[in-house]
Simulated scan of single mutants.
Amino acid sequence: MSQSPLRLYVDSIFTSPYAMSVFVTLREKGLAFDLVPLDLEAAQHQTADFARLSVTQRVPTLVEGDFALSESSAITEYLDEAYPETAVYPVDPRQRARARQVQAWLRSDLLPIRQERSTLVVFCGQQMPPLSPVAEAAARRLISGAQTLLAGDPAHLFGEWSIADVDLALMLNRLILNGDNVPADLVAYARRQWLRPSVQAWVNQPRPVL
């Protein structure tokens, strides 16, 4: 293992959307880091050693020297403040707040989508049955919100690319990559985000065959 000042703990099958968000942030900033996969099914995130690092015992967790931080949006916000040379959030305070709003929404709402369209759909090609009525309602909320945010078909949410674009594209891809009905403009938006080299670096991590 290299002696990078940064270590990022992620899930060993590389399907956590939150680990992806931090991984992309680190890559976009050009920061060297060691990637440490944990087998969540084997409860490696519940060991005493990891509990000393991560107060939440979750991935992603970032370690920098004697400083450790969990929860993806907290990590990406910290990295943007600690390493400001390449921003992953909008510079304008109001747009920055809106980017954080998008992240908070995607993490706290739309649970039926996350339950019925796991990221195994996104990263491992798993196909799931039709959405339940409650998940269809959540999908309509997602699509409506995304179309409002992307009115006028901009390349990115807030002018320049931000990490919120990756988070939104991933949520949309839960539906798109399962073949669910998503408007063409949102499909095109998600595909644009997916082509970023930093995103492709995560997408192309080795995973088990289902």
Results as ranks from 00 to 15, higher is better:
residue 189 Y to G: 00
residue 20 M to Q: 05
residue 14 F to H: 03
residue 18 Y to D: 00
residue 126 Q to D: 14
residue 166 V to N: 10
residue 136 E to M: 15
residue 152 G to I: 05
residue 116 E to A: 00
residue 146 A to L: 01
residue 53 L to A: 02
residue 63 V to Q: 11
residue 176 I to C: 02
residue 153 D to E: 15
residue 161 W to Y: 06
residue 5 P to Y: 03
residue 93 P to E: 05
residue 180 D to P: 09
residue 67 F to D: 07
residue 86 T to S: 08
residue 193 Q to K: 07
residue 93 P to R: 10
residue 42 A to S: 13
residue 60 P to V: 02
residue 65 G to S: 04
residue 110 L to A: 07
residue 30 G to F: 03
residue 6 L to T: 04
residue 172 L to W: 02
residue 209 V to E: 13
residue 167 D to F: 02
residue 178 N to M: 04
residue 39 D to G: 13
residue 173 N to G: 06
residue 129 P to D: 00
residue 159 G to E: 05
residue 145 G to N: 10
residue 191 R to Q: 15
residue 188 A to H: 12
residue 123 F to V: 15
residue 133 P to D: 01
residue 25 T to M: 06
residue 77 E to W: 07
residue 117 R to T: 10
residue 90 P to R: 05
residue 137 A to L: 04
residue 75 I to E: 00
residue 74 A to E: 02
residue 156 H to E: 09
residue 72 S to E: 06
residue 114 R to V: 09
residue 43 A to R: 15
residue 94 R to H: 09
residue 139 A to Y: 08
residue 131 L to I: 08
residue 34 D to V: 06
residue 51 A to Y: 11
residue 210 L to I: 06
residue 201 A to D: 09
residue 204 N to F: 10
residue 22 V to R: 01
residue 76 T to C: 05
residue 58 R to A: 11
residue 162 S to T: 12
residue 183 P to Q: 10
residue 65 G to L: 03
residue 33 F to W: 01
residue 208 P to N: 09
residue 36 V to N: 08
residue 59 V to N: 10
residue 48 A to C: 08
residue 9 Y to N: 11
residue 96 R to W: 01
residue 143 I to Y: 15
residue 82 A to S: 13
residue 181 N to M: 14
residue 203 V to S: 12
residue 70 S to D: 11
residue 186 L to I: 12
residue 25 T to G: 13
residue 190 A to Q: 04
residue 180 D to Q: 13
residue 206 P to A: 03
